[in-house]
Lab assay of single mutants.
Amino acid sequence: KRPVSAMFIFSEEKRRQLQEERPELSESELTRLLARMWNDLSEKKKAKYKAREAALKAQSER
Protein backbone atom coordinates (compact mmCIF):
# COMPACT_ATOMS: atom_id res chain seq x y z
CA LYS A 1 0.00 0.00 0.00
CA ARG A 2 1.38 3.39 -1.02
CA PRO A 3 1.64 6.13 1.60
CA VAL A 4 -0.60 9.14 1.12
CA SER A 5 0.71 12.32 -0.48
CA ALA A 6 1.04 15.72 1.17
CA MET A 7 -1.77 17.03 -1.02
CA PHE A 8 -4.03 14.16 0.02
CA ILE A 9 -3.37 14.91 3.71
CA PHE A 10 -4.18 18.58 3.08
CA SER A 11 -7.34 17.68 1.15
CA GLU A 12 -8.65 15.34 3.82
CA GLU A 13 -8.01 17.97 6.47
CA LYS A 14 -9.86 20.72 4.56
CA ARG A 15 -12.59 18.74 2.75
CA ARG A 16 -15.11 18.50 5.62
CA GLN A 17 -14.82 22.20 6.42
CA LEU A 18 -15.37 23.13 2.77
CA GLN A 19 -18.34 20.78 2.48
CA GLU A 20 -19.97 22.57 5.42
CA GLU A 21 -19.16 26.04 4.08
CA ARG A 22 -20.06 25.28 0.44
CA PRO A 23 -22.69 22.48 0.41
CA GLU A 24 -23.70 23.40 -3.15
CA LEU A 25 -20.39 22.16 -4.58
CA SER A 26 -20.32 18.79 -6.29
CA GLU A 27 -17.57 16.33 -5.41
CA SER A 28 -15.62 17.20 -8.57
CA GLU A 29 -15.95 20.95 -7.92
CA LEU A 30 -14.79 20.41 -4.36
CA THR A 31 -11.77 18.45 -5.58
CA ARG A 32 -10.87 21.19 -8.08
CA LEU A 33 -11.17 23.83 -5.34
CA LEU A 34 -8.94 21.81 -3.01
CA ALA A 35 -6.35 21.41 -5.79
CA ARG A 36 -6.40 25.16 -6.43
CA MET A 37 -6.04 25.84 -2.69
CA TRP A 38 -3.08 23.45 -2.53
CA ASN A 39 -1.39 25.09 -5.52
CA ASP A 40 -1.88 28.54 -3.97
CA LEU A 41 -0.46 27.43 -0.61
CA SER A 42 3.00 28.78 0.22
CA GLU A 43 5.92 26.37 0.34
CA LYS A 44 6.26 27.16 4.04
CA LYS A 45 2.70 25.98 4.70
CA LYS A 46 3.09 22.98 2.39
CA ALA A 47 6.12 21.93 4.46
CA LYS A 48 3.82 20.91 7.34
CA TYR A 49 1.99 18.45 5.08
CA LYS A 50 5.17 17.24 3.40
CA ALA A 51 6.64 16.46 6.83
CA ARG A 52 3.56 14.39 7.68
CA GLU A 53 3.86 12.61 4.32
CA ALA A 54 7.51 11.76 5.06
CA ALA A 55 6.63 10.51 8.55
CA LEU A 56 3.87 8.26 7.19
CA LYS A 57 6.18 6.98 4.46
CA ALA A 58 8.91 6.16 7.00
CA GLN A 59 6.35 4.43 9.20
CA SER A 60 5.04 2.31 6.32
CA GLU A 61 8.57 1.18 5.41
CA ARG A 62 9.10 -0.47 8.78
Rank of each mutant, 00 (worst) to 15 (best):
residue 9 I to F: 08
residue 24 E to I: 01
residue 7 M to I: 06
residue 62 R to P: 04
residue 58 A to P: 09
residue 59 Q to N: 15
residue 41 L to M: 11
residue 49 Y to N: 00
residue 47 A to K: 13
residue 32 R to D: 11
residue 3 P to H: 11
residue 60 S to C: 13
residue 10 F to A: 00
residue 4 V to Y: 09
residue 23 P to Y: 02
residue 33 L to E: 15
residue 42 S to V: 02
residue 5 S to P: 08
residue 27 E to Y: 08
residue 30 L to A: 10
residue 3 P to G: 09
residue 54 A to D: 15
residue 5 S to Q: 08
residue 54 A to F: 05
residue 50 K to E: 14
residue 37 M to I: 04
residue 33 L to F: 04
residue 44 K to M: 09
residue 3 P to E: 11
residue 2 R to N: 14
residue 56 L to V: 12
residue 52 R to W: 04
residue 25 L to S: 03
residue 51 A to F: 10
residue 31 T to K: 09
residue 10 F to V: 00
residue 12 E to L: 05
residue 17 Q to W: 08
residue 39 N to H: 08
residue 32 R to S: 15
residue 2 R to V: 12
residue 16 R to C: 14
residue 7 M to W: 05
residue 26 S to Y: 01
residue 26 S to P: 06
residue 39 N to K: 09
residue 56 L to R: 08
residue 58 A to M: 07
residue 40 D to T: 04
residue 25 L to M: 14
residue 8 F to G: 15
residue 1 K to R: 05
residue 32 R to L: 14
residue 13 E to H: 04
residue 14 K to Q: 11
residue 13 E to Q: 07
residue 55 A to D: 12
residue 13 E to R: 04
residue 48 K to F: 10
residue 61 E to P: 05
residue 15 R to H: 02
residue 27 E to A: 07
residue 57 K to F: 11
residue 44 K to W: 09
residue 36 R to K: 10
residue 46 K to M: 02
residue 36 R to L: 09
residue 23 P to A: 03
residue 38 W to I: 00
residue 24 E to S: 06
residue 55 A to S: 11
residue 34 L to W: 00
residue 50 K to Y: 10
residue 10 F to Q: 00
residue 36 R to H: 02
residue 35 A to N: 14
residue 35 A to Y: 02
residue 7 M to D: 06
residue 6 A to C: 04
residue 45 K to G: 14
residue 52 R to H: 08
residue 5 S to M: 05
residue 16 R to Y: 10
residue 13 E to D: 12
residue 9 I to W: 04
residue 42 S to P: 09
residue 25 L to F: 02
residue 43 E to G: 04
residue 21 E to W: 05
residue 10 F to I: 00
residue 48 K to C: 10
residue 12 E to A: 09
residue 1 K to L: 12
residue 40 D to N: 03
residue 41 L to E: 02
residue 15 R to M: 05
residue 38 W to Q: 01
residue 8 F to H: 12
residue 27 E to V: 05
residue 56 L to A: 13
residue 59 Q to I: 14
residue 48 K to H: 04
residue 15 R to G: 06
residue 13 E to M: 07
residue 59 Q to S: 12
residue 56 L to T: 15
residue 47 A to M: 07
residue 4 V to M: 13
residue 20 E to F: 14
residue 56 L to C: 06
residue 23 P to M: 03
residue 12 E to C: 05
residue 20 E to P: 03
residue 58 A to G: 14
residue 14 K to T: 08
residue 21 E to Y: 03
residue 44 K to T: 13
residue 20 E to D: 15
residue 55 A to V: 13
residue 19 Q to D: 03
residue 46 K to G: 00
residue 33 L to K: 06
residue 23 P to E: 02
residue 37 M to F: 04
residue 13 E to L: 03
residue 52 R to A: 05
residue 16 R to F: 06
residue 32 R to C: 05
residue 38 W to E: 01
residue 60 S to A: 13
residue 39 N to E: 12
residue 12 E to S: 13
residue 7 M to V: 11
residue 39 N to P: 01
residue 42 S to L: 01
residue 22 R to L: 06
residue 59 Q to F: 05
residue 2 R to P: 03
residue 7 M to C: 11
residue 53 E to L: 05
residue 19 Q to M: 15
residue 47 A to H: 03
residue 22 R to A: 06
residue 3 P to C: 03
residue 37 M to G: 02
residue 49 Y to L: 01
residue 41 L to N: 01
residue 56 L to H: 12
residue 42 S to H: 05
residue 22 R to V: 03
residue 14 K to D: 01
residue 12 E to T: 10
residue 17 Q to M: 13
residue 40 D to V: 05
residue 38 W to M: 00
residue 55 A to I: 07
residue 6 A to W: 02
residue 10 F to E: 00
residue 19 Q to L: 14
residue 61 E to D: 10
residue 19 Q to T: 07
residue 56 L to G: 10
residue 30 L to S: 05
residue 47 A to T: 07
residue 1 K to D: 15
residue 20 E to K: 15
residue 49 Y to A: 00
residue 45 K to W: 04
residue 32 R to M: 08
residue 62 R to W: 15
residue 55 A to F: 15
residue 5 S to L: 06
residue 9 I to L: 13
residue 45 K to L: 07
residue 43 E to N: 15
residue 60 S to P: 14
residue 59 Q to E: 15
residue 58 A to W: 09
residue 54 A to E: 11
residue 60 S to H: 02
residue 19 Q to F: 03
residue 6 A to K: 02
residue 22 R to M: 09
residue 17 Q to T: 13
residue 23 P to N: 02
residue 15 R to P: 00
residue 30 L to Y: 09
residue 42 S to N: 06
residue 49 Y to M: 00
residue 61 E to M: 15
residue 62 R to S: 13
residue 45 K to Y: 05
residue 54 A to R: 13
residue 51 A to S: 10
